[in-house]
Design a protein around this nucleic acid. Structure first.
Length: 237
DNA sequence: AACCAGGAATGTA
DNA sequence: TACATTCATGGT
């Protein structure tokens, strides 16, 4: 079945918020992976601080993370919340690449997406969302990232059942959209931006008019009411 | 001053 | 399977 809703949603989010520029390039894959782990339940601002601390201490490489005491890693990433737990996660990933791939991160990443994904999920500290973030933002593979914002948005639009699994939501995006890493990159970032935006006051819906182009999407966040004009049919999952 | 931010592991029933 | 707890910074 062909369903244009997800494409339309993307266009509207892009028009409303503009390109988000997540991981624009120039960053080594390991730095992106570290970012994906450190930003778990943590603002990006604080995760970025932690990354800069690691860079300053020359600890932004798999080998450096393997060699350094976890305590020293923890000190660097303290701004990123749960720093002891995340220090172990960084160590677990670095050791996985060292032990299984002789520290060759490029070789580790250069595998079929589903193969790499299964491998990532065996590593301590990497769940489905982080695995997909690594596939997408570090390996450049079109794997759609599902997060709480995406689930909430689709649920309140009435497009999914709230109990739908992660895999169901991921399939929904990946079956209805072209498998394009740049598209998935931007789409996920836009969903996050939209979720964070309280468009009640501003900036998106704050033009004072009653015909905000995102009016129905604005209703989809915040107040728990279902968006206007959404029929109960067309649910997935 | 509670609440949340680009989650996952572990434990319990 | 489903739900609760732990982790423990910084901005609002």
């Amino acid at each position: 079945m062909t369903d244009e809703r997800l494409r339309d949603l993307f266009e509207r989010l892009l028009a409303a918020y503009g390109p988000q520029g997540w991981w624009p390039g120039g960053r080594a894959p390991f730095e992106v992976i570290v970012g994906a782990i450190l930003t778990q339940r943590c603002s990006w601002k604080n995760a970025a601080r932690a990354i800069e601390n690691l860079r300053t201490e020359q600890m932004l490489s798999p080998n450096a993370v393997c060699d350094a005491p976890v305590g020293r890693i923890a000190v660097c990433i303290r701004p990123a919340v749960f720093y002891n737990a995340k220090a172990k996660k960084l160590r677990a990933f670095a050791e996985h690449v060292r032990d299984g791939w002789r520290g060759d991160l490029d070789a580790f990443l250069d595998r079929p997406p589903e193969t790499l994904r299964r491998d990532l999920l065996t590593i301590h500290g990497i769940g489905e969302e982080t695995a997909d973030a690594i596939l997408l933002y570090a390996a450049g593979k079109p794997s759609f990232v599902i997060d709480a914002y995406a689930r909430r948005l689709l649920e309140r639009l009435g497009w999914i059942d709230g109990r739908a699994s992660y895999a169901t939501l991921r399939r929904l995006f990946m079956e209805q959209l072209p498998l394009d890493a740049a598209l998935f990159n931007e789409y996920h970032a836009l969903i996050v931006q939209h979720g964070k935006t309280r468009c009640r006051p501003r900036p998106v819906c704050g033009d004072g008019s009653d015909r905000c182009p995102l009016a129905d999407l604005c209703l989809a966040i915040g107040s728990g009411e279902r968006a206007a004009g959404v029929r109960s049919g067309g649910r997935v999952g």
